[in-house]
């Protein structure tokens, strides 16, 4: 098991595109973690005398990426925006991983009525287009990052549960499960020691791709101004506030946050894709 895992990591390491993406992703995470130390200014303090200043391309090194419509330093806001996206992303992943795995394992392992009940409820959640569900729930709960996280998690928990259920059903047929039961292994023991490690690779791939998606959904909610307060330095919200100035030529308020979203989403997507290729041997390139 251990060596097989390392072997697959080697396959991943040979994927150049995925390695570059991993580097970018790590860089973004580091920038986000140290956002408050690196940022030259306070991301929310306004300075109306210096609004919509262009950045380095106009020789303005005080505000390298310029300022927004309220005179806030764009670089500082973008760095803090990274911290917010990652915080939402990781919270969504943590919540989804926990509840999705729990529901998926319980549903597949016990089967019968438990399975039917859980899957029926999951079907209801999957009947909504993902963005619509997150939007509707965030709209009811009102503005606030926690609400956005909760709304996005509710989109993914059912999906994750389904993925996990599928993998567990496959693992369950292996004879080592039967062997463990014959050796008087309890349900908890089997689920924790045998099933969980076996579904770990597919869950890992899924969660990486999910992180990319979660960042995209957070930005979408921010752009629509739902579940995230407009003053929050969130990439989607920043981009939305810059939209009206774009047509007047002040492009930086809209362009830079957009580039950051693309970089973040793309790098996590590429890492996820690389992992999938390494861990899912059926997939060909």
């Amino acid at each position: 098991m251990q060596s097989e895992f390392l072997q697959k990591l080697t396959i991943f390491r040979k994927n150049r595109l995925a390695m570059v993406a991993l580097f970018v992703a790590i860089l973004l995470v580091v920038l986000a973690l140290f956002a408050s130390f690196i940022s030259p200014y306070d991301p929310v303090s306004t300075d109306l005398e210096n609004k919509l200043l262009p950045g380095f391309w106009a020789g303005n090194w005080d505000h390298p990426l310029g300022t927004d419509n309220l005179g806030r330093d764009l670089l500082s806001r973008i760095l803090h925006g990274g911290a917010i996206s990652l915080r939402v992303g990781y919270m969504v992943i943590a919540v989804t991983a926990f509840f999705g795995t729990l529901l998926g394992i319980v549903s597949a392992y016990y089967g019968g009525v438990v399975d039917i009940l859980i899957m029926r409820v999951i079907d209801v959640f999957l009947s909504f287009p993902p963005l619509l569900l997150a939007l509707a729930i965030a709209a009811s709960l009102g503005a606030g990052l926690e609400n956005a996280m909760f709304a996005i998690s509710l989109v993914y928990i059912p999906q994750m549960a389904r993925v996990v259920r599928g993998s567990v059903l496959k693992v369950k047929t292996n004879s080592f499960i039967e062997a463990s039961r014959a050796l008087a292994g309890g349900n908890m023991w089997i689920m924790g020691r045998h099933i969980l490690p076996n579904i770990f690779p597919s869950a890992l791939v899924y969660l990486t791709l999910l992180l990319a998606d979660a960042i995209l959904y957070t930005a979408s909610l921010g752009f629509l101004g739902i579940g995230i307060k407009p003053s929050t330095p969130e990439w989607g919200a920043m981009l939305s506030s810059g939209k009206e100035y774009l047509l007047m030529g002040q492009w930086w308020v809209t362009v830079f946050p957009g580039i950051m979203i693309v970089l973040a989403v793309l790098s996590f997507n590429l890492v996820g894709d690389g992992l999938r290729e390494a861990f899912d041997s059926k997939l060909k390139r």
């Binding site: 979408s220 809209t254 957009g258 693309v262 989403v265």
Partner: peptide, 22 residues
Amino acid sequence: SLVGVSIPIFWLGIMLMFLFSA
């Protein structure tokens, strides 16, 4: 095609609007 699924469509829309309209 990977870039395509990673671009937020609202940003792409704004950029297209900027280029072709403005």
